[in-house]
Every structure is written in C-alpha cells, then in structure tokens.
Write a protein that binds this DNA or RNA. Structure first.
Length: 580
RNA sequence: GCGCCCAUAGCUCAACCGGAUAGAGCAACGGCCUUCUAAGCCGUAGGUUGCAGGUUCGAUUCCUGCUGGGCGCGCCA
C-alpha cells in the first residue's frame, strides 16, 4: 500500500529536482501511519527533512510537492498539515488490493527477499548437557527458533547450531555424580553425605540404573578407594579429588561413565527441543574442537600474532588491547585450556566453515563475555562486525507470589518439559516471545496453569478458527463461497473492513521490522491486534448475508485475515487450528 | 568501585529503527447471547513516559549526569 504513495511521491520529488528546487531524491522515503484518522491514511515528513536543503519553509515545500504529485488511482486526496506533513487519504481500492495480494501469495504473504540468500549462522540455547532444559532455556529456544523462521521468511539461509559443552570440568562432575548414584542404586552407602556441588537431580537416577544394567557391578570396587571428602575445606577441591580418584581407579571404565550422563541427557535435550518445534541444522561438539587440535591452533594463532603473554605460569590473551576490561587466561598453569579458549576456537571455526554473518544468542548473565570474544576475533584478523550478539534476559519463575529457585546443581527447577506439559507447546512458545528479549520475563506457573485458557494465544487462534467456521457454516446453509478466484472486492467499503485490510497491509512491514530488529515479539503483538480487529468486525458485521456479491467479498477478506494469522503463528511456531 | 541491560496507567507490557492528542491486556465499574463459536464484542475510568539538562522544527525514542532495580566482574562452565 505504501508503494502506491511512495511511487507518486518520488515522481513529485523528481520533478522538483528537475526544476532545481532539490538536488536529489532521497534514497528512502518513509511513510508513517498517523495515529489520528484526520491525519490521513499515510503521512510523509519528507518536506520537514528537506526544507533546509530547499531553503524554504517546510509547509511551503510540502505545498510544492503536493502540486507536483501525479494523478493516482489509489490516492483520493492529500493535504499539508501541521509543521509540514503531507497527509495522504487513500481510495478504498488501495485497501481492497491487499486481499488480492494475500490470495496470490498465500503462505508466502508477508515474506521478503532482502536477505538475498545470504547464509546466516544462528547459535542459541547451547545449554550445558548436565541436566534437562529448564524454563529459562525455553525462552532462548522459543526466541531463537522464531527468529530463525522470521529471517528465513525474509530471504536468509539460516543455519541453526547448538554448541555442546561436552568437555571440561562440568562433565567430569556429572560423571562423578552419576557414579555416586550408581553406588546408591547398588545399595552401596556413601562414606559421606552426598556432595553439595555434585548434580543431585532425579534425572540422574535412571541414568545410573541404566549404567548398572549395562556394566553390572564392575564399577563397584572403585568405591573402596573413595577419597575422604571431609578433610577438604573447599568443596571444589574435594570434587576434584573425587574425579581424579575415579579416573585413576576406573581406568578405561571412566569413559563409559562419562558418556552415560552426556549421551542420555543430550538425547533428552534434543527430543525436548524437537517436540517444542525447535530444530537445529548442527550440533557442534566442544570436544571435537579439542580433539581436532582447533583450540591449540587458535591459541597458537593468537600467540604468533603477538597477542599473548605468559604470567604466573598461565598463558594470557591481551584482550585489553581491544577494549576489554582485563586480559583473559587462555591456558591455565596446569596446562588445561579455559572455556574461553574453546570459545575463541569455536568462533574462528564458524568463519573457517564459511559463515560470514554470525548471530549468537546468549543468556544475559554472559554479557561479560561479549568484549573478550569480540577482542579475540579482531586479534585473529577476523571481521568482528560480522558477529552479532543478542542477550536474552532471564525468565524468572514464580509460583504465585513466590520466586522459584533455579539451581541445576540442586535439581530444584521446573523443566521445559514440565512447562510444556502444563500449558501446552502453543501457549509456551507464544508466551516466551511476547516480551522483548531485553526485558525480564516473569513466568508465573500458577497463572500459566490457572489461566491457560485466557492466554492470548487462544484469542488469536480463535479468530483463525472462526473464519473456518464461517466457511463451514456457509456450506451447511447452502450458501456459495468464493473459491480460488478472488471475488469482486468493491463491496468492501465499511470503515471496519478497510481498517482490517489496512492491518493486513501492515503484516509484511511488521515481518521486515521484526527481522531487522531481531524482535519476534513484534509479530506476536501484531497478531493480537489483527485478531482484535477481526473479532470487532465479526461482531459488528454479519458476513453470511443473502446477497452473494457482498458475502463473497466479506468472506474473501476474512479468509485473507485467516491466512495472515496462520502465516504469523507459523513464524512463531504456534499452530493455527481450524476449529476450537 | 567498574561494565552491560532496564525504568512508560494500580499490575504485566507495547509504541512502526526522531513525528502530530503515548496504546493494549489484566484488575475495577456498566452493558451485549431467539441470527455466522460469549475462548467473543461495546463502553467508563486510569499518565508530568524515574529525575535534571542537552541536540532538534519535533524526544518515550538520540547524548550527558543523577536516582532506583537486574546481571556480570575467577587460572569456573
């Protein structure tokens, strides 16, 4: 719809360029939708922006632009208002046209091609595989998957990846935790209370039992040499001693122990995400970076370029040279690489694999890592600007008034799986993206359960189902309905009908904004607005009227509404049911 | 102390990358089912956009400072 006005406007400006009033036509002409109906259907501030260059008053320039506007079959009239706005009033045809557009484009209505087939690497969730996903991870999953859909809809080729932290100390702690549960399941009492810094969630019990079915009591003898954890003042040192002892005692059997936890939990995470409609193109293993020597190579590359130094036996990266607060350790004095070192290698590897546009979605608690990762890319001579980091704020869980503690270690958390079972995938997906990513999300379980039927997602789905109901109803009453062909749309003249059509025009605009700003919530808010406009129209206007020309036009309009709702819900990973 | 994010109606949040009189939902109050799904609609009420400056024709939006909150600041992941 904006295109109708933009073309007329640029023609007028071109004329002013030729007459010497202006030096050139601006590259982009923006049109606003005035909040007030008296300000027209679309408004341009171009005269305000160009007044200085034209050396005349904004209103005067606006008058000249209006005078130069060519005749248009879509523009009824326009007027200059306020400080120099040009307000356009459109003919009904301009609004009706959108129905034809929706019919023609169908599932592609709202799509763009500004991505131009560019490949974009999107990393999200990447939670440590030390336990099931909880409701906090769900937000990243819903946000990332929705954003991937939206970007694909705008012409990008999106490669979704999950970075699996399957190496390092956390995995050893997991292995040790599995072992302790293994002992318990064999009826073997622990010589001390279950360590506070071991993982203690119930999800470890079946893993331990499966391990016992697989290996029998083979791992039991090692229990005779468990270190006396009581003599350690620091629980971390105690845990390290336990891990070391297990590695020594179990020898080749440590690997299956290590693997048992990882594989079972990772399989659960994958299944959980798949059921949630979140699909990945790749699962990238941190261990593979280690095994392939990629980490060593990345660190050597930094060293060769003169960006590292040794202090206190550790190898440091001089990230302060690129704006970081302090330098960062790459390799500890004990020879082990830090998590940061593998992150450096991982990001370098993304470039090496041919990705030139990277989007990382991190939990907001990782914001301190932004500077150091960017610094490492710059130091390696990679295009740091190609990396975009989106920080997603916490989802804070409440049970009524009470805040629910969320410790993976302690096993006190509500899993994503539980949440999905309670409120359903559709409501969960929608609820998660209903808020801007940089806002904290208060997720009240009581409210979600108790009012699941009042969730806005039902309001939108209901609008969609109502349209299908209309077509079913028409069939039952023996009334004809418009089929594949778009019927004559001239009967759509009512203000509500034109307002509804205007909203449909906005869908492609919202999709574009949402993609560029990486803000899926824009789609969610738009859908609520569209559903509201539809319900209003539905209540005010009888659609299945006797006169077939009017009936057909109205049915075509509401069918376009249903199509648009379905397209929007699909982007958010929410279903669009035909009956409720 | 330093850094990142946030502050808008009683509550939870929007506001089309600077536009004209800042909008929804929930909560409160009052209406609408003998006709297409009441999981719906209509109406009333609710605001000095945290505070103080600056840039601009024009600021919730951009800049500076302050206040208040969240998070981070380890040779943890």
């Amino acid at each position: 719809m904006k295109a109708f006005v933009t073309s007329a406007l640029s023609a007028a400006l071109q004329q002013l360029v030729e007459s010497g009033t202006l030096s050139q036509v601006p590259a982009s002409l923006e049109l606003d939708r005035p909040k007030q109906a008296s300000h027209g259907d679309l408004a341009s501030n171009v005269a305000l922006l160009l007044a200085k260059e034209a050396r005349c008053k904004p209103r005067e320039l606006a008058e000249r632009i209006v005078a130069a506007l060519p005749e248009s079959s879509h523009i009824a009239r326009c007027e200059v208002a306020g400080p120099g706005f040009i307000n356009f009033f459109l003919r009904p045809e301009a609004f009706q046209e959108v129905v034809r557009r929706v019919y023609a484009e169908g599932e592609r209505f709202g799509a763009h091609d500004f991505g131009q087939g560019e490949t974009l690497h999107l990393e999200f969730v990447s939670a440590n595989p030390t336990g099931p996903l909880h409701v906090g991870h769900g937000r990243g999953a819903a946000y990332g998957a929705s954003l991937a859909n939206i970007l694909r809809f705008c012409g990008y080729r999106v490669f979704c990846e999950y970075y699996v932290n399957d190496a390092g100390r956390q995995m050893d702690i997991l292995a040790a935790s599995v072992y302790l549960r293994y002992l318990e399941s064999a009826g073997h009492p622990l010589p001390w209370p279950y360590p506070s810094n071991a993982y203690r969630g119930d999800y470890l019990l079946p893993i331990a039992e499966a391990l016992r079915r697989e290996l029998g009591d083979r791992l039991l003898p090692a229990a005779a040499h468990l270190p006396d954890l009581g003599r350690f003042a620091d629980p971390d040192e105690a845990m390290d001693a336990l891990i070391q002892q297990l590695k020594t005692d179990l020898g080749a059997d440590y690997a299956p122990l290590h693997r048992a936890g990882l594989e079972t939990i990772l399989a659960d995470i994958r299944a959980d995400l798949a059921e949630f409609g979140v699909h990945y193109d790749g699962w990238y293993s941190e261990r593979s970076l280690m095994d392939s020597g990629a980490i060593t190579r990345a660190v050597e590359a930094l060293t060769a370029a003169g960006h590292t130094y040794v202090r206190d036996g550790a190898l440091w990266f001089r990230s302060t040279a690129y704006g970081d607060d302090k330098d960062r350790v790459l390799r500890r004095d004990n020879g082990a690489y830090t998590y940061f070192a593998s992150d450096v290698a991982y990001h370098a590897d993304k470039f090496a694999r041919g990705f030139h546009r990277l989007v990382d979605m991190w939990g907001a608690d990782h914001h301190g890592y932004v500077a150091r990762v960017r610094a490492s890319l710059q130091a390696m001579g990679l295009d740091e600007a190609a990396l975009e980091i989106l920080l997603v704020q916490f989802a804070i869980l409440y049970r009524g008034e009470e805040k629910v503690s969320m410790s993976t270690r302690a096993g006190e958390f509500v899993t994503l799986r539980q949440l999905r079972a309670e409120v359903g995938n559709d409501a969960a997906r929608f609820f998660y993206v209903l808020r801007r990513a940089d806002q904290h999300l208060d997720f009240d379980l009581e409210l979600a359960k108790q009012r699941s039927e009042e969730n806005p997602v039902y309001y939108i789905q209901y609008a969609h189902a109502r349209v299908y109901s209309l077509f079913r109803q028409a069939e039952e009453q023996g009334l004809s309905t418009p089929q594949e062909q778009v019927p004559e749309l001239a009967p759509l003249q009512d203000a509500r009908e034109l307002a509804l059509a205007d909203l449909l025009w906005r869908f492609p605009e919202v999709v574009g904004i949402s993609a560029r700003a990486r803000e899926p919530h824009q789609i969610a808010f738009y859908l609520k607005e569209l559903a509201a406009a539809f319900h209003t129209y539905y209540n005010a206007t009888r659609i299945l009227v006797e006169e077939s020309a009017i009936r057909h036009a109205r049915l075509a309009l509401v069918r376009a509404v249903a199509r648009t709702i379905a397209n929007g819900l699909t982007l958010l990973g929410v279903s669009a049911p035909e009956r409720m």
